[in-house]
Design a protein around this nucleic acid. Structure first.
Length: 457
RNA sequence: GGCGCGGUGGCAGAGUGGUCAUGCAGGGGACUGCAACUCCCCGUACAGCGGUUCGAUUCCGCUCCGUGCCUCCA
């Protein structure tokens, strides 16, 4: 079965047919770096990381580009608030973002372009738009003239008129048309600015991605992705800019052939927002949960569906991963053999990245397979989904944390005493010892191989 | 107001025109001195109303409910 994906451009699930099967190219809009990454940022990163891994499974060469937006007014605000420079803000949060994503098993994109390093490309593209009559200068701003683009609205399915009718922002007086959007805007001294044919200024947000995608992937490329909220206006504007800059206003696929959007994460059923103060940061969650647990939780709903974050989901993923790692631990000395990719899992992944189904199939595999076959299948799936990347010993290693050597000897002494008590059928004493251990925060389990113990929280 | 998305068993969450999702939680059982772990078994789920059909949770229409975007929020 071939790879299928849901193309936002025509709202249909389609067979993925690469422009060039020997080199597939994908771009996904990355974060604006002015704060810690939240779980919503993480969902985007994880989803497109899996897409990239899946594409690599199918095709010999994949270039995945995902940008860092390091020019934006919010960054300027953050710098002022924190009393540090703009570049200190962007540098700091870029590192935090990459570290946090790495903790979720997200591989660094092949290219991670930064907006500030592509100002010239943006200026060039804006110039081309002006030359072709799609943009104009007004009071130090350069604006894209929406009525000049006959196909504007193709992605979001809203016409210019509808957009104007629904607009809730005041229209700047210098705009020729209410729908026109900014390509370049003037900067004052304390704002970041670059020289341009239109004076000292900075780029609008949309032009950044257009310029960076073209520079690193060339046009057209295969897949463009991002969060669902970016569909309008960001992605709509990207299409307008990139197509019109090259005289391809009529062909919306002259920029990217497929468009993929991931759904939002809600918390307790509500959207994360500053006013509700319910932003969940990866930085915080990673303190209490393993990265792969968070990652799998982010993949527990289909990527296009909304995902409600809850402790229950985390609990379930923890159990599943523990179960799998337990098997991997038992099989640690077994050699990996060459196995076929488990068919139902491959089909699920091929079907527009149906990761919830993959999770269900994992449960079945854990029940139905064993030995080298199980280990090999698990690892093969893990490479695409981005799980089972840890050493099984390390996975369970944390459970020994905070238990000193002294405690260990004490525990073992008590266990030895308990075995003796059991042998003497002195179950009262045996149970006393169990309770004593429990008070120390140690839980024991009698198995056929003997008694195990572990720290409980 | 405009443009979308969704309503599946206690919960999470896939899927299908007519035999199974899966997991968590819950109930029962096996095992065990008892617990726990493990294993086995169980529960008349598809918002409502019409329509198409031999047959619809699955297709179409309407209603109700929830939710996202339209504000340089992933």
């Amino acid at each position: 079965m071939s790879l299928k994906l849901y193309n936002s451009l025509n709202r249909k699930k389609e067979d993925f047919v690469p422009l060039n099967p020997s080199h597939v190219k994908m771009y996904a809009c990355g974060p604006t770096v002015y704060n810690y990454a939240h779980i919503g940022n993480a969902r985007m990163a994880v989803v497109f990381d899996v897409w990239a891994r899946m594409l690599r499974y199918h095709y010999p060469k994949v270039t995945y580009a995902s940008n860092i937006t390091d020019v934006e007014d919010k960054i300027i605000v953050a710098a002022k608030e924190q009393g540090i420079t703009i570049s200190e803000v962007t540098k700091k949060y870029t590192k935090i973002y990459n570290d946090d994503m790495a903790s979720l098993g997200v591989q660094l994109p092949d290219v991670q372009p930064k907006a500030t390093e592509h100002i010239q490309e943006m200026i060039d593209q804006i110039s081309a738009l002006i030359e072709r009559g799609h943009a104009y200068e007004a009071e130090g701003h350069v604006l894209f003239h929406v009525p000049s683009d006959p196909t504007y609205g193709a992605l979001s399915g809203r016409t210019r008129d509808e957009q104007v009718a629904g607009a809730r922002v005041e229209v700047a007086p210098y705009k020729r048309d209410p729908a026109d959007f900014v390509l370049w805007k003037p900067s004052n001294e304390d704002q970041l600015g670059w020289d341009s044919p239109w004076g000292n200024g900075r780029p609008g947000w949309h032009i950044e991605c257009s310029a960076m995608a073209e520079k690193h992937l060339g046009l057209p490329f295969d897949i463009h992705g991002g969060g669902a909220d970016l569909k309008f206006p960001h992605h709509e504007n990207e299409i307008a800019q990139s197509c019109c800059a090259h005289g391809n206003a009529d062909d919306v696929t002259s920029f990217s052939k497929y468009w993929v959007h991931n759904g939002f994460v809600t918390v307790e059923g509500e959207k994360m927002s500053k006013s509700l103060g319910n932003f969940l940061l990866v930085h915080d969650l990673i303190k209490d949960h393993k990265g792969e647990v968070l990652r799998l939780a982010l993949l527990s709903a289909h990527y296009r569906q909304p995902l409600d974050w809850s402790e229950q989901v985390l609990h379930q993923m923890q159990i599943l991963l523990d179960k799998a790692y337990q098997k991997l631990l038992e099989l640690v000395d077994v050699d990996v053999i060459d196995v076929d990719f488990v068919v139902p899992v491959l089909n699920a992944l091929n079907d527009d990245l149906n990761t919830p189904l993959v999770i269900a199939e994992l449960n079945k595999i854990l029940k139905e397979q064993d030995g080298a076959e199980l280990k090999s299948s698990l690892l093969k799936i893990g490479d695409v989904v981005g799980i089972f990347q840890e050493d099984p010993h390390d996975w369970f290693g944390d459970e020994m944390d905070g238990v000193s050597d002294e405690d260990v000897s004490k525990i073992e002494a008590l266990l030895a005493e308990r075995i003796e008590a059991k042998d003497n059928k002195d179950y009262t004493r045996a149970d006393e010892i169990r309770d004593e251990l429990l008070e120390m925060g140690i839980e024991i389990k009698d198995t056929r191989e003997g008694t195990n113990w572990q720290k409980v929280s």
